[in-house]
């Protein structure tokens, strides 16, 4: 690839990304009332998206080979238990991450 082609390639990646981020705001501008259906989706989507992002992070975990997702399952359990216990976001995240690092570096 020439430098120009590289610049175009990176620009296209950026344009596509910005399109996905800006399109909803360009379609539903504040000066017109947002359709009720879209308002509903706006309220109902966040919890579905958070669930989707958890799975997205785990997408490359193989359940049928290697450690079969065991370190991930254990570390997530630690995160959940720590969070139910103390409700401290930083503690839960740090605890789960340290647990995961110990697991993958030593046991698995």
């Amino acid at each position: 690839m020439t430098l120009t082609q590289q610049i175009i390639t990176v620009a296209l990646c950026a344009i596509a990304t910005m399109a996905t981020r800006f399109i909803p705001f360009l379609l539903f501008t504040p000066d017109k009332p947002t359709p009720k259906y879209i308002q509903y989706l706006g309220r109902a989507l966040p919890s579905a998206i958070f669930g989707m992002l958890v799975i997205y992070c785990l997408k490359d975990v193989s359940l049928f080979s290697g450690s079969r997702g065991a370190p991930e399952a254990i570390a997530i359990a630690v995160v959940v238990l720590l969070h139910l216990w103390r409700r401290n976001m930083l503690l839960s995240i740090a605890g789960g991450t340290v647990c995961y690092m110990v697991l993958v570096q030593t046991i698995f």
Partner: peptide, 21 residues
Amino acid sequence: DTEGLSFVMTAMFVVIFLDSF
């Protein structure tokens, strides 16, 4: 030796999901 550090992102999304849940 930071193998496994990227799990911090997974942990964060788990916490956000749990809080919202």
